[in-house]
Simulated assay, not measured.
Amino acid sequence: MLEASNRQIAALALSMLDLTDLTDTCTPEAIEDLCNRARTAFGNTAAICIWPRFVAQARAVLGLNSAVKIATVVNFPSGDLPVDAVLEEVRQAVADGADEIDLVIPYRAFMTGDEQAVRVMVSAVRHACPRPVILKTILETGELKDRGLIRSASHIAIQEGADFIKTSTGKVAVNATLEAADIMLTCIRESGRKVGFKPAGGVRTVADARLYLTLAATIHSPDWPMASTFRFGASGLLADILAVLEDRDAVAGATAY
């Protein structure tokens, strides 16, 4: 990754991008625009990531067999909903056409020592996601803070069937960090399973993307990062990707996610 050109990194990041709109003011018009922006002259983003209430609309816009997947969030952003309520969110999202479920683990309960709450939630949602629906688990690492907690949460999520482990909701003060990424990527390697990694929140430039991709390639292998094992959760990153691919200067999106 260190030797790759900016254009190469940009093209790779585009193919791994979960183009996101989880703003509280999101509208149907914004979702239509998001779907359109996910399909660029240089290729498609891996997915869009949106509120559950917009999944059916996005499916209608993108079509049934779209190369752009539809990801949605559940137990989001608090992580505090009861399991039954989360399962209802999952079932409705899948019925509406979601390809991927991004689940916030009950991280506050976990921080008080309740590991079982995480196991029960992740396992229940995994069983509610029929294959090939992908389950990503959001650990909210900026709130967990402690390396041991991040490590433990990563291993629990993997053991209970997560397809990806994801850093953050993008709704707290500290979101994706290279330190958290290092811990999570190492846990994936230790698990021996094919599990993906998704940094989310604060990845705004191709230079940022390079740092995460280089870390993943170092911990795993140079050919490990691909859309099936690595995603960026971002709203502003696409602007900088396109600027690089179009050989122009641009200020990357200043959005929080």
Rank of each mutant, 00 (worst) to 15 (best):
A11F: 00
G43A: 09
T141V: 15
A71M: 07
T112G: 03
D182Q: 15
G113F: 01
L144G: 12
Q159W: 05
I219P: 13
L81D: 15
G43V: 03
A227Q: 14
V172M: 05
V61P: 03
G97C: 09
K69N: 08
F230C: 07
I150M: 15
A217E: 15
E89V: 07
P106N: 11
T255S: 06
E100H: 06
C187F: 10
A38H: 01
A256V: 07
R193W: 02
A85G: 13
S78H: 10
V90Q: 08
A180N: 13
S66Q: 08
L242F: 05
N6A: 13
I241V: 08
F197I: 05
D99K: 12
V68Q: 10
D96Q: 12
T20K: 01
M226H: 15
D146Q: 13
A58S: 15
K198P: 08
L144E: 09
R7P: 02
Y212R: 07
D163Y: 11
V251T: 09
N36F: 07
Y107R: 03
P132M: 07
L103D: 08
T186C: 03
T186F: 08
P132E: 01
A200I: 04
R7M: 02
R91G: 05
A98V: 03
L87H: 06
P106T: 11
A209Q: 04
P222D: 11
A153Q: 06
L237N: 00
A13H: 01
D21P: 00
A153Y: 10
V90W: 04
A30T: 09
L17R: 03
S66W: 05
G170M: 05
T23Y: 01
